[in-house]
Design a protein around this nucleic acid. Structure first.
Lengths: 221, 221
DNA sequence: AATAATTTTTAGATTAACCTAAAAAATAAA
DNA sequence: TTTATTTTTTAGGTTAATCTAAAAATTATT
């Protein structure tokens, strides 16, 4: 069945919200991410339900059906593969690719995506450390910790970010925090939970709790 | 001013029709290429004229304005650069790329197109030999001849095709006719203007006038 | 030049995606 | 457990892009 760009975006947004919770997703939450009004969302949810892509009961919120989930994951897959392309092949920075990938994710050609995947060397994650679903829509669960949850004197590796906003990513770049960086947590300040951390053996720098919350790490020792 | 995919496609179609003639373009001609009805075209032409992208007088046909021409050329540029990408980098055949490029041509990012151009080595033509407009919308005039117009005993080089349809391109591939091939015209048959031609020094093969009409060549000797 | 044929435009509807304002349902507070 | 607040839905409209059918303009033919 044919699907519009708008419908794809709704499914993607519902999918994103569903990752954070096991509850049903509220109309307002969708409206906020879609940058539209609740009334418009109600309209669309009714139509998505008719097409069998979501389960939706008036006033009870919405969830993706199995088919809707499959569609959403294929869009996420395309988005993330294109992001890898933009950074690895086209030389964009990791904070510049989101908008362009938002457009490219709607290009329809299974063959193209398969060739792109191959061309990129079957990457496992996008430039922000987010896992890339495979063609069957299996999304490997990467169970990383938030840097804000790690104890002092631990060593870890920066595996991803919990947020793709350009301002956040630019800040990380300024702080020399990039994917794969080795982080030694020197001290956690009780006052505001800010952290002194050494990046790749360099002199320790100061990081706010807010930043640490959005950094995903793997504990090494 | 914002432009929709549909508007972009109309401008592209009007541009294509304008290349073949210096006359104004008729509503019906646009309707046929856009695969829509004349009434819908009239509607759209009125709106394109309001936006200043075409000059249009009721019943008198339509032409692109300078600004419309610029937009059309930027779409053609994107389309052809993406075609080069699909063939050179992704390994598609020349008869497989049109549909996908029709989608990719609407991706909006000057930076991306610039980087893509660079990545591809600033190609001058697409995989069908069509010239790629530069970023200022200058389209190099490649004055090639149709194979059907060449005299017997001449040697020429296959520089492009006058048609991008998959069936035509697949036929050329079967006949081992690809861009750059050296063609020796052995004999032109009076009966139906079919041609005996030797491709890259191989034994001569038989080609219909219809095929020859759609092959563009440069005369070598 | 008058009539016929064709092309183009207008008129009026339809669909997807949105909107505002008001009504209804669900949730929270007194 | 009423009342107040918040959330969600309905009702009714708008816009872009399309359609069909009918009217108007242009072009071709006698």
């Amino acid at each position: 069945m044919a699907i519009s760009f708008t419908e794809e975006n709704y499914l993607k947004v519902i999918h994103r919200l569903s990752e954070a919770t096991s509850e049903d997703i509220s109309t307002n939450a969708v409206a906020e991410l879609m940058q539209t009004k609740a009334a418009s969302v109600t309209d669309m949810l009714r139509r998505l339900a008719e097409k069998g892509w979501v389960n939706y009961q008036k006033y009870q919120g919405v969830r993706l059906s199995a088919e809707g989930e499959k569609i959403a994951l294929s869009i996420v897959r395309k988005h993330r593969l294109w992001e890898v392309f933009l950074v690895d092949k086209m030389g964009f920075n990791w904070d510049e690719v989101h908008e362009i990938a938002e457009q490219l994710e709607h290009i329809e050609s299974d063959q193209l995506i398969h060739k792109l995947d191959e061309y990129l060397g079957f990457p496992k994650t996008d430039p922000h450390g987010d896992p890339i679903p495979n063609k069957d829509g299996i999304l490997p669960e990467l169970a990383y910790s938030h840097l804000s949850d790690i104890k002092a004197n631990k060593t870890c590796k920066l595996m991803g970010v919990a947020q793709d906003s350009a301002v956040f990513l630019q800040l990380l770049t300024k702080l020399h925090l990039s994917l794969g960086a080795k982080l030694d947590i020197q001290e956690i300040n009780e006052f505001d939970r800010s952290i002194f951390v050494s990046i790749n053996e360099a002199a320790p720098i100061f990081i706010s709790h807010e930043v640490a919350k959005n950094i995903l790490v793997k504990i090494l020792a």
